[in-house]
Design a binder for these strands. Structure first.
Length: 475
RNA sequence: GUCCCCAUCGUCUAGAGGUUAGGACACCACCCUUUCAAGGUGGAAACACGGGUUCGAGUCCCGUUGGGGACGCCA
């Protein structure tokens, strides 16, 4: 049997970390088994579903490289089919019309709450004759669920999970306005789409019992279930906006790489011995549901940053130059001609110091900004009058420098510091500020070589003359 | 409240009855060093608790505690 899986988000919000990981596991599982990975948009609630959310989900999946193998199925287009199945169950006596009013249901809930019992529909219309139906009340169609025995799920992750049927009530299949509910739609669509494995969040585990009963009633084989543990926030509670349940596209904006995102998400709840990093090929070859753990994990930004830094360093300089362009643009910078040349030359030194593309852009900015360079406040403090004098004195020395390469420049600067009675480290920091506007940068002499003699002398003169504006700290 | 699930360093996890309980992130120290990173070396850091079963339990069973999830004419 060939594997068919689906990712089935409801378009009521953005694709967040949890959804992204569910999609990833489905995608990986399908690739591993050479099966199909489908996308179904569960837009059966017209009030909460939006076009923007659909686009955001599609965009997020695309960025992560998790495009579905076929065009997405919109659940709302399949109402007629869902209704058809409901009517068939009704005709077969496996479902019935219920005329209970919202008020009655609310009263039932109140009573259950007061008695400390689970809030369940009491089945008052289950065996009642339709002739007793109150006039003018549009009924819902309820599933006639088994009342005794138990329902058992063989979950690929959770193992055997069972629940007593008394715990479950007669769920609504068709609302009084004739629209199908989620529970019905999911089952019918999964049957029609030929889904073999349902891989989804653990929060759906209890739904699985009801869905299992529906499969049985419809007479369709039940797909294999794999309920993967949820991702929690750093404090162990439900992942929320303030934790990082941001749209995955927010991570794109923060300068994360999709492959880093995938790798991080993969290792959240799944592992393969001590292996930490996986290429896509490795992940596809090694991924299996049996490697998925059962306990929930917490989202950890520090680890994500570290993983991203790892994948950033794996990128070629040429790739990085293209990837960083949009982030440079946000700083109002472009890298053309001389700027592109400097960026390419400086990339090895830059990328070792950046964990994200945002950090990379910020670190690269000094190569691209026009003179006089803005300097950060902490850096400006290093340029006191005495140090400015020293920089002024350094200018002619460097102008006389014939061999403009790292070791020669270092020798020159060390000798200069010695003859002027300066600690080399202090001189170096002052020069660093003059050349980069910051106390932190790639190697000083590497920077000198990449900037070139004229630019270096120009920047030193700016600093000596106190021409640099103070950066506003935004960068 | 009822039902279901979960429980190894702060975090992600390895561990399928006998291990000095391993790795990664973060943290600390040292090395390197012109800053910051990167890199290298080392360190601190865990089996929630209580009962069983067993010659032997992080591993199996039960309970407790703690955490999470589900309980809609939402999905």
């Amino acid at each position: 049997m060939s594997v068919v899986v689906r990712f089935a988000p409801s378009p009521t919000g953005y694709l967040h970390i949890g959804g992204a990981r569910t999609a990833l596991f489905n995608w990986l599982f399908a690739r591993h088994h050479k099966g199909k990975y489908l996308l179904r948009i569960e837009d059966t609630d017209p009030v909460r579903s939006t076009k923007e959310a659909v686009d955001a989900i599609l965009d997020g999946l695309h960025w992560l490289g998790l495009d579905p193998d076929e065009p997405p199925v919109f659940q709302s287009t399949r109402f007629a089919r869902h209704r058809e199945v409901a009517m068939r169950l009704l005709a077969e006596g496996k479902a019935y019309r219920c005329y209970a009013t919202p008020e009655e249901l609310e009263a039932m809930r109140e009573k259950a709450r007061a008695e400390g019992r689970p809030m369940r529909y009491d089945g008052r219309w289950r065996d009642r004759d339709p002739s007793e139906a109150p006039p003018g009340v549009p009924p819902v169609i309820r599933f006639k669920a088994p009342r005794t025995g138990e329902t058992v799920i063989e979950d690929l992750v959770q193992g055997t999970v069972r629940v007593a049927n008394e715990q479950l009530d007669d769920m609504v299949l068709l609302r009084s306005d004739g629209t199908p509910t989620y529970m019905l739609s999911v089952v019918v669509d999964d049957i029609d789409m030929g889904i073999t494995h349902i891989i989804r969040g653990h929060d759906h585990l209890t739904n699985a019992f009801r869905q299992k009963q529906l499969y049985d009633a419809i007479g369709a084989p039940c797909p294999a279930f794999a309920h993967i543990p949820l991702i929690h926030g750093p404090d162990g509670t439900k992942l929320s906006k303030r934790h990082g349940a941001l749209a995955v596209t927010e991570y794109r904006a923060m300068g994360f790489l999709p492959e880093a995102m995938r790798c991080y998400l993969l290792r959240l709840g799944w592992s393969y011995g001590d292996k930490e990093f996986f290429t896509d090929e490795e992940a596809i070859a090694l991924f299996d549901i049996s490697g998925v753990g059962r306990s929930p994990s917490r989202f950890d930004m520090a680890k994500l940053l570290s993983v991203n830094a790892h994948f950033l360093r794996l990128k070629s300089d040429a790739e990085l130059i293209e990837l960083v362009r949009p982030f440079l643009a946000e700083l109002g910078l472009t890298a053309e001609g001389e700027g592109a040349r400097r960026l390419a030359a400086g990339m090895p030194g830059l990328k070792a110091r950046a964990r994200t593309l945002v950090e990379l852009a910020r670190g690269a900015a000094f190569y691209l900004r026009p003179r006089p360079l803005p300097v950060q406040p902490e850096g400006a403090q290093r340029l006191d009058a005495a140090m400015r004098e020293a920089l002024r004195a350094l200018v002619p020395v460097l102008e006389a420098q014939e061999v403009w390469e790292e070791t020669a420049l270092e020798a020159t600067c060390r000798a200069f510091a010695e003859t002027h009675g300066l600690k080399f480290a202090n001189l170096a920091q002052a020069v660093r500020v003059a050349l980069t506007g910051s106390l932190v940068s790639p190697g000083l002499f590497e920077v000198m070589v990449i900037l070139g003699k004229d630019e270096v002398i120009g920047r030193l003169e700016d600093a000596a003359a106190g021409r640099n504006p103070i950066a506003d700290g935004a960068n």
